[in-house]
Nucleic acid binder design. Structure first.
Length: 574
DNA sequence: GCCGTTTTCGGCCCGACTGTTTTCAGTCG
């Protein structure tokens, strides 16, 4: 069993946690975190990295040697011995909010606590009160934290954060004391999952704003309530952090709290290189504060073009900024239509006409309907008779619409051998086909990659659906070599979708820069199973923007006429 | 542990809040 990048990254991450527990030098700890991060977004195979001479920033000689050992032997002596120093389960304790390495160390050394269960029992029996630095309040918070960790595992799907965030923004907007406000944090950066909601407000009267915030009816619990920073938990379990600053500080605060941490670190060192200091309150030359009234101005002061929030991950944005420039990113308004929607013919909850009307309400010119194929019996997959019936209904509806068209599609299962789910004459009856894997995930990486590439090579395949099969926060991707899949898609003129359903957001944005450079075309598809599902396109746009995609990279920015001729030319039978 | 167009040694981002203290450590972002 060979090690993949994610597993390797997790091991480096765990080493960092263990070193923290040991009380190691914080910079050494940070180096391991940095190595883990580098591995996660590595643009080559692990074997290539450890065998080659290419240097990668963030992985020095020591980490490289450990990584090589891991890749070659499947084991790392250093990690194993470090792990042996602590009982299994101790690391779980650090997932509890407000429990860091120092407190965890005390808990396990003095009370021999090595699991969430142990900790819960100890709290219930008031055992923590005897420890230095622990009091009743801490114990109470830990008990709450254990529940929180068990229930939510700390992260949330972007839709679960986006909806309440909009509610709080509108609420705060109505306050006369609020001068400016914005979403910040990972939600503004449109990450695929988020830990909490961050909002920044500029005001001259922070107390009034904070009071209104913590007293909002959706607030379940107040975690912190200060003059410039407050933090609450909502009934749904998600946290919101609110920061207030003065109008003078606002642009700097928005930049700071939008992050990412890694992006900010680079920005700070750029400032430092110029003899300046950057923090959430301003850019300083000695005591002198340099004025900036927008994020654009701050970037300008550091000789950078404006970097949109979605790109601020220290992933590619600084090299883009200093090379070809920051691309003008695709927006929701650029989408003229969309593909991948289910109806009551299979497992959707709305009829063909209802789905089409919902798309029209969004201002779209076309909708590609793709119910499930016959093998997906669990989802009511369509047999040949159903398909004929659906096509007749679509023809009639299209007759009745002005300037709107339903495209006839199918989400064909990719069978275990890589073939599509109907005989050729049936495949030929569709305007387009999305090929997706829905079963038999337990193949090896090579087998799965070959299976999907075979489907890509089928001339009837127009798009590849949710290419990795991941379900965020619940199911990992099946093993697959996405670089090979992307290369095959490009070679065969197949579109790889950005599945915009918040549970999937698949293809991962970290692959999009590679795909774009190679010339891959994508389509932002909601995978809608209801009329509301069409609204999920916005989350797919966020992913496209994180990947640096522009209008020309996205099929469904084409007008009805252009997309119709594209599909016609692409169809092997026409 | 990582990094370097002044550097192979000496730095490594920085501030707010809580809970415990009695002036501050730990945690978080």
């Amino acid at each position: 069993m060979s090690i993949d990048k994610k597993q390797a990254a997790n091991i480096f991450e765990e080493i960092a946690r263990l070193l923290e527990l040991k009380g190691a030098n914080q910079f050494r700890t940070r180096a391991y975190v940095g190595a883990a991060r580098t591995l996660r977004s590595l643009d080559m195979e692990l074997e290539e990295l450890v065998d080659g001479n290419e240097k990668v920033k963030g992985i020095g000689a020591s980490s490289m040697e450990k990584l090589r050992e891991l890749v070659k032997t499947g084991k790392m002596e250093y990690y194993e011995s470090l792990k042996a120093e602590f009982p299994e389960g101790v690391l779980d304790l650090m997932k509890i909010p407000r429990l860091g390495p120092k407190k965890v160390k005390v808990l396990y050394q003095q009370l021999n606590i090595t699991s969430l269960d142990d900790l819960e029992k100890a709290c219930e029996q008031d055992e923590l009160l005897s420890l230095d630095g622990f009091g009743a309040k801490t114990q109470e918070n830990i008990l709450k934290g254990i529940k929180h960790v068990r229930q939510y595992k700390g992260r949330h799907l972007v839709r679960a954060a986006h909806v309440p965030a909009q509610e709080f923004l509108s609420h705060l907007q109505t306050l006369p004391e609020v001068l400016e406000l914005d979403l910040a944090g990972s939600l503004r950066r449109r990450k695929e999952t988020v830990k909490d909601i961050d909002i920044v407000v500029s005001t001259e009267e922070p107390k009034a704003v904070m009071n209104a915030f913590v007293n909002h009816p959706l607030v379940h619990e107040i975690i912190a309530h200060g003059d410039t920073k407050s933090s609450v938990t909502l009934d749904s379990g998600i946290n919101i952090d609110l920061r207030t600053v003065t109008p003078e500080q606002y642009a700097y605060a928005l930049l700071h709290f939008t992050g990412s941490k890694e992006h900010n670190t680079v920005m700070r060192s750029r400032a430092k290189d110029k003899g300046l200091k950057l923090n959430e309150y301003g850019l300083f030359r000695g005591e002198e504060r340099i004025h900036a009234s927008s994020e654009e101005e701050i970037y300008g002061l550091l000789d950078l073009p404006f970097i949109p929030p979605e790109l601020r991950e220290d992933h590619a944005e600084f090299s883009l900024a200093e090379g070809d420039g920051i691309p003008s990113l695709v927006t929701l308004e650029d989408l003229k239509g969309t593909f991948h929607a289910h109806t009551t013919y299979s497992d959707g909850s709305a009829s063909l006409d209802e789905m089409a009307q919902a798309a029209m309400l969004q201002g779209l010119e076309y909708l590609g309907i793709t119910d499930h194929s016959q093998t997906a019996y669990y989802a009511g997959g369509l047999n040949v008779y159903d398909i004929e019936k659906q096509h007749k209904e679509i023809d009639a509806l299209n007759e009745s619409y002005d300037n709107f068209r339903i495209f006839k599609g199918i989400e064909s299962d990719i069978l275990a051998d890589g073939s599509l789910d109907y005989p050729e004459p049936v495949l030929a009856s569709f305007d387009f086909i999305i090929a997706s894997v829905h079963s038999q995930f337990n193949l090896t990486k090579d087998e799965m990659t070959q299976r999907i590439i075979k489907a890509i090579e089928n001339p009837y395949t127009t798009m590849l659906g949710h290419p990795t099969g991941r379900l965020l926060l619940s199911r990992e991707s099946y093993p697959i070599d996405m670089h090979k899949v992307i290369d095959a898609a490009i070679a065969n003129g197949v579109i790889v979708e950005i599945n915009a359903n918040p549970h999937r957001l698949d293809i991962d944005w970290r692959l999009l820069q590679y795909a774009k450079e190679k010339g891959m075309l994508t389509s932002i598809n909601p995978d809608a199973h209801s009329t509301e599902g069409i609204n999920d396109m916005i989350y797919g746009v966020g992913i496209a923007r994180k990947g640096g995609l522009q209008v020309g990279d996205v099929l469904n920015t084409l007008s009805l006429q252009d997309v119709a001729s594209y599909l016609d030319e692409r169809h092997p039978g026409r």
